[in-house]
């Protein structure tokens, strides 16, 4: 990203913006329409390749995998707002693409894992029927997922509080001879030595970091996706367990491909914008304004959801 020249950066910004505008002005509907039509073909293809596989056609495995990837992809392209959240997060926050990608990928894969665990235990240990298993997904695992999310939230809050209290005291007493110290100005910057004593909320959030985010994803991923459940139940019934498990993971990769593309676009936009407007003071201000607007947009959407969830 550092090597891109300003014209290229302007081009990238324009491109991502144009795509965003297309999405807002009806492109989203068009995409949803296309995805819904494709979903039907993909479902038929999945059934056909499962039957062919069962009939002993090894080439059907390749078909099944591509169909599963397509299923995940169209699933993610279809109606729904998650993509905007990923995009908003990527634009507003200075998250590296790597971390954003891990989050997107882990979320998808975790859902495949929980579908596999549900079907495996459901069939082997409990002898559940299909309806009982999809009900288990809706009525047991969805609330279990919510409970786990709440636990992660509590853990994070406690840890954050510890850090906030512990760090501010420790940092201050260790770094300086207490008597001779100048007063601390707003923002925690020491007036004589110029460095930060108390961690600002940003640092706390950063410290919560990847590990906490992953914990959260795992909690959320407890709830399996319906498509993967259907595939796995069929796989178990038809004695095609391994193919179905591979298919569930491939489906997750298909879903993640969309999220990854959105994450990539968002980070490209953010980096290119920074590059295009250069380093001046006005530029910095503009960047902050964009950051705030993107963040606020996503926050407004999100807080309601989160409140309902927790």
């Amino acid at each position: 990203m550092r090597t891109i020249t300003r014209p290229v950066a302007f081009g990238a910004v324009a491109l991502v913006l144009a795509f965003g505008i297309w999405l807002w002005t009806g492109g989203m509907d068009e995409l949803a329409r296309w995805a819904a039509a494709a979903q039907r073909d993909v479902q038929n293809g999945m059934a056909r390749s499962l039957r062919a596989l069962r009939a002993g056609d090894p080439a059907a495995l390749t078909t099944l995998m591509s169909v599963c990837f397509a299923y995940g992809f169209f699933h993610a392209v279809g109606p729904g707002h998650g993509k905007m959240l990923v995009g908003g997060y990527g634009v507003a926050e200075k998250v590296p693409l790597g971390r954003l990608s891990i989050v997107a990928l882990a979320g998808s894969l975790m859902q495949a894992v929980s579908a596999i665990v549900l079907v495996a235990t459901g069939v082997w240990l409990l002898g559940l029927t299909r309806a009982q298993m999809t009900d288990a997904g809706d009525y047991w695992l969805a609330p279990a997922s919510l409970a786990a999310i709440a636990l992660v939230g509590v853990w994070l809050a406690i840890r954050g509080m510890h850090r906030l209290l512990g760090a501010s005291q420790r940092a201050h007493f260790q770094a300086h001879d207490y008597d001779g110290h100048a007063p601390i100005s707003d923002g925690g910057v020491c007036e004589t030595c110029g460095h930060v004593h108390a961690p600002d909320p940003g640092e706390v959030a950063q410290a919560a970091g990847l590990r906490a985010t992953l914990a959260l994803i795992l909690a959320i991923g407890i709830r399996p996706c319906t498509g993967a459940l259907f595939l796995l139940i069929l796989g178990w019934g038809m004695d095609l367990q391994m193919a179905a498990i591979a298919g569930a993971f491939t489906m997750a990769l298909g879903t993640a491909s969309v999220t990854l593309a959105v994450a990539g676009g968002a980070v490209l936009f953010r980096e290119s914008l920074a590059r295009a407007i250069g380093d001046g003071q006005g530029a910095a201000r503009l960047a902050s304004v964009i950051e705030i607007l993107a963040g606020l947009g996503v926050t407004v959407l999100s807080v309601g959801l989160l409140l309902r969830l927790l």
Partner: peptide, 8 residues
């Protein structure tokens, strides 16, 4: 935000 993103 990360929480929501993971909901995707």
């Amino acid at each position: 935000l990360a929480a929501l993103l993971a909901l995707f």
